[in-house]
Amino acid sequence: FTATKVAYAITRRNDGKPDGRGRFRYAQISSSSLIALAHGTNDAQKTMGVITLTLIAAGQQAPGSGPQFWVIVACALAIAIGTYSGGWRIIRTLGSGLTEVKPAQGFAAETSTAATILASSHLGFALSTTQVASGSVIGSGLGRRGSTVRWRTAGRIGIGWLLTLPASAAIGAVAAVIAHLGTVGLIIDAVIGLAVIFFIFFRSRRNAVHAGNAIPVPNVAESGHAVRISGSKVRRVKTETGTLPPLTNIAMSAATEDKERKRALEEAKAAEKAAKAATKRAKKALKESKNHKKGTQK
């Protein structure tokens, strides 16, 4: 909230000239990279800590020792692959579901998120990057005049936070009881875990969220000015809102859908116009028929 207020205050102009706030999208390259660093310093450390604690409890590692190298590499790869592979529903929720995020708001939210996580990592506190980012986005929505925060979505996120701890504790307790059965218990835990993962994955594919529909096309196109991927094919696309700047292949599918909607709308209007013309001709023919009939009777 405060960072957004400051960002808008220092860029406010009273001479009627452009404020240049759109250039904050260039600064977001650095702020988002800082979040990636903060994400690794906190979330990855929690995973490494759990694995290391398990190894110590099982007698596979000496008490008081730090994470083994393979644990560090495995956690780093898991975090990197998971971040790279998607999470598009979360991207859509944070990017446009909570509030309409402008470049200045995005920069303020990202810097606030990174600062909070890095500070907590330094102090040894465990935080959730998603929770901190959600709070920052809500604050940025409150900080920009005229912006609207979708509190219903924020409420659903809050309920999810409240249910996370008890649900995780219950699942962990059940898994621990099953694991005490020995090797068979471990196999049962693994099978159940994989089954749940695949069920959630295929369930989510019914209404898939991907790079093409996670964020509105104009927003993706505007961001494309700040980040250009070398070697990617770009071209201008006409949409209902006008001609967009060059789009990367990531946004082309959404742009195509926009063109198809426009074409369908034009066809519907043409059909409606033709129907009105046919109705008008029918009325005219009926009127002429009545006049002709009256003339014949006379």
Rank of each mutant, 00 (worst) to 15 (best):
L181H: 13
T113E: 08
A221Q: 04
R205Q: 15
R203N: 14
I72S: 01
S30H: 07
H39P: 00
A214R: 02
R13I: 06
A57N: 08
F201H: 13
K284M: 14
P216V: 05
R281G: 06
R150L: 04
A268C: 01
G22K: 01
Q131S: 07
L94W: 04
H225G: 10
A115I: 13
T279E: 15
Q61P: 02
W70C: 01
A78P: 00
I215N: 04
A57I: 00
A221M: 02
A278W: 08
N213C: 04
K5V: 12
I159G: 03
L55R: 08
S32A: 15
C75K: 00
S33Y: 08
T83D: 05
I117V: 14
T164K: 01
F202P: 02
G64I: 09
I56K: 08
A36W: 00
T99Y: 05
I35P: 02
I79T: 06
D258A: 12
A173H: 15
K280V: 15
H292M: 11
A254N: 11
G106H: 04
A226V: 05
L98M: 06
K5A: 11
A190P: 01
A208P: 07
A109P: 03
A169H: 11
A119T: 14
V217T: 12
S30I: 13
A3N: 07
L127W: 02
W88G: 03
A58M: 10
G49T: 00
G158L: 14
T279V: 12
R263E: 11
G86C: 01
T113Y: 04
T47N: 00
G40P: 00
P218I: 02
L186Q: 08
H210E: 12
R89C: 03
L34F: 13
A282H: 15
Q297T: 13
A190D: 08
H122A: 14
K290V: 13
F201L: 12
S147R: 05
A270M: 07
S128T: 05
A282R: 15
S134T: 15
V227R: 11
K287S: 13
S134Q: 10
T153I: 10
V209E: 08
L247T: 10
A226F: 04
R236K: 08
F24S: 07
W88H: 13
A36R: 00
A108K: 06
A7N: 15
A176R: 14
V217P: 02
H180K: 12
F125Y: 15
T130S: 14
V71D: 02
A175H: 03
I91A: 11
T256R: 09
T241G: 06
E288M: 11
A251T: 03
A190N: 09
L37N: 01
P67A: 13
R203S: 14
L265A: 15
R150I: 05
Y8L: 09
L55S: 06
L247F: 05
F202N: 07
A154C: 13
Y26L: 10
I178M: 06
D258G: 05
A109Y: 06
W161N: 05
Q105W: 05
Y84P: 00
A133Q: 09
A268F: 08
A167G: 09
T148L: 07
R21H: 05
F198G: 00
F201C: 07
P245D: 11
F201Q: 09
A221L: 01
K284L: 15
F1V: 13
A104E: 10
L163H: 06
M252I: 12
H225C: 01
G22L: 02
E288P: 04
S33I: 03
